Computed example of a mutant assay.
Amino acid sequence: MQREELLREQVKAMIFNEPARSTELRTQIGEQGLARAHFNFTTAVFAGAVIQYFGEELDLAALRTFMTGIRHDFRKADPPLKFMTVEGAVRAIYGEDHFLDEMTGEEQLIAMSAVIRKITFETPYITDNIEPFLDEAEKLARQWESEG
């Protein structure tokens, strides 16, 4: 599987709740040395999903409501989801990137994955338009890579 296809298929497996396939593809990503590309692509998908859900400006009341839902939906997650990490990752999209200073890359991936799953479950627009949505994320990830 080519790089872009592998990254896209892993994210689709996550979005469409195929945990075994998602894990298998993440293993392949690691074996192929694509961890940085995976992180960038997942971050681009996350950014697109967050902006699609919250809009161009973050309303803190909407974020509080969203976080209540995250706490409920992931209350039995194993390992437990760090809810402050989730909120910090969302707020980072809106310029509060100081929240990222306290998170490891893996914590960011876990938080972003939870948000992507919740938003795509609640926002049919993304799943109904998955290929164009992933095309845009791919362009953004490539831009970040070219910027260094």
Rank of each mutant, 00 (worst) to 15 (best):
E122Q: 11
F54V: 13
M1Y: 10
A35L: 15
D101T: 02
T23N: 12
R36G: 04
D59A: 04
I51W: 00
V115S: 12
D78C: 05
M14I: 15
L81D: 13
E57M: 04
L134F: 10
N40I: 00
S146V: 12
T127R: 07
E145M: 04
R8P: 05
D128R: 11
R8K: 11
I110S: 03
A61R: 13
R75Q: 07
K139I: 15
L81I: 15
Y53M: 02
T85H: 10
S22N: 01
A92V: 01
K139C: 01
A92R: 04
E138N: 07
H38K: 09
T123N: 08
K82I: 03
F54L: 13
F121L: 02
Q28F: 03
R8Q: 14
W144V: 02
Y125I: 14
E9G: 02
T42R: 13
F66V: 04
E136C: 05
F16H: 08
Q10N: 09
D135G: 00
D101K: 03
G148D: 14
V90P: 02
F54H: 14
R3M: 10
A89C: 10
T120N: 11
E122N: 14
A77G: 05
L34D: 00
A47Q: 12
I126V: 11
R117A: 05
E138T: 10
Q2M: 09
H72W: 09
F46Q: 00
R142T: 08
I70D: 00
R21Y: 06
Q2L: 04
L100S: 08
L34Y: 07
I126T: 02
T120V: 08
P80T: 06
A137H: 04
I119F: 14
V50A: 11
I93Y: 08
H72E: 09
L6V: 07
F74W: 15
H38W: 09
L63Q: 10
E9Y: 05
Y53C: 01
E31K: 06
M112E: 13
H72M: 11
A49T: 05
G69H: 07
E56F: 13
S146R: 15
T68I: 02
A114R: 03
V45T: 05
R142W: 01
T120H: 07
M1N: 07
I15E: 04
P79G: 07
Y125H: 01
E5T: 04
F74G: 01
F133P: 10
F121K: 07
G148Y: 13
R71E: 08
Q32D: 05
A141V: 00
M1L: 12
